[in-house]
Amino acid sequence: NITNLCPFDEVFNATRFASVYAWNRKRISNCVADYSVLYNLAPFFTFKCYGVSPTKLNDLCFTNVYADSFVIRGDEVRQIAPGQTGNIADYNYKLPDDFTGCVIAWNSNKLDSKVSGNYNYLYRLFRKSNLKPFERDISTEIYQAGNKPCNGVAGFNCYFPLRSYSFRPTYGVGHQPYRVVVLSFELLHAPATVCGPKKST
């Protein structure tokens, strides 16, 4: 009989979030998941669920729940959905087409922007091929755009693959930082360890 609440607040209220290319994953298990708490945590810009209804979450049980978190800019949030393409979905964080879970995003301009520009958040701009779903690539190998090998040196047709967002508070919403948490629900042929409040007794 599990009584402890799932530590969603640790994920959502973390002081620092990860850069999207090096997104963070927390496995959540053996706890009571009260998803209604999430609705009250922040004024969400996005709370979209796929393959599951957000209002039914509190009635369900899962084997595992994974919470992935990272920062992107406002106009990239739409890429965090099944079947999307674009720089983020292709080279940084890719959801599977049959994704079961929820994408939660909110504006973090007050936390993640600086007047002089916050350069701490990076994204991958160049990659030889698209990522597979939930693949994480943290390599910093020089990207070869031409025929000549780069031998690890940046220059003509040889690019450092990561680029930094420079978040400034005066930017338009599309270029402001957004914190994203992706909850993916895993149903294996194994005992369910993460249940809503109704199912945990």
Rank of each mutant, 00 (worst) to 15 (best):
A89K: 02
V20T: 03
V103M: 00
H189C: 08
F126C: 12
S139I: 03
L5R: 13
S108N: 05
A22L: 05
P133H: 02
A154H: 10
G83V: 04
F156Y: 14
I28S: 02
N1K: 09
F167S: 06
N109E: 11
T140P: 06
V173L: 14
S164Y: 09
K56V: 09
V153L: 11
A190H: 12
A154N: 11
Y91W: 07
A81L: 02
P161V: 02
Y171M: 15
Y121T: 04
R168Y: 10
S113N: 11
S164L: 07
F12H: 01
F62R: 06
P7V: 09
T85S: 13
D75M: 07
G174L: 13
A42W: 09
S19K: 02
T193A: 12
C31D: 06
I72S: 02
I104F: 15
A22V: 03
A192H: 13
V103W: 00
T140F: 07
A81K: 05
E186W: 08
N87H: 15
I88H: 02
P169C: 05
E186K: 09
Y66R: 06
V71S: 02
T193N: 13
N147K: 13
I142D: 06
R25G: 02
A33L: 14
V71A: 02
H175S: 15
R179Q: 04
T55M: 13
K94T: 07
G146Y: 04
G146K: 05
G117R: 07
A145K: 11
R16N: 13
P149R: 11
F70S: 02
P96N: 03
G152Q: 10
C31Y: 04
F167V: 05
K110I: 09
Y123G: 04
G196D: 11
T63R: 12
I138D: 12
Y39N: 14
L95F: 00
R168F: 10
F45R: 15
F12T: 03
P43N: 10
A22H: 09
G86F: 04
V37H: 11
C102E: 00
N87M: 14
D59W: 07
S113K: 06
W106Y: 07
L95G: 00
G172S: 15
R179H: 05
A105F: 08
T15M: 05
R16D: 13
A67C: 08
P197V: 15
P7N: 15
P197K: 15
P7H: 11
A42E: 11
N64S: 12
L57V: 07
Y35C: 06
S116C: 07
S200K: 13
F70T: 01
S166R: 13
S184K: 08
L188I: 13
G83D: 06
R127L: 04
F47Q: 08
P169D: 12
H189F: 07
D59E: 15
S139V: 03
V77M: 05
P177N: 03
Y123L: 04
Y143I: 10
V32T: 15
W23P: 04
V11I: 15
K26H: 07
L125F: 13
F44W: 14
R78N: 13
F44H: 15
G155N: 10
N30L: 04
R163K: 15
P82F: 00
V71W: 01
S36E: 09
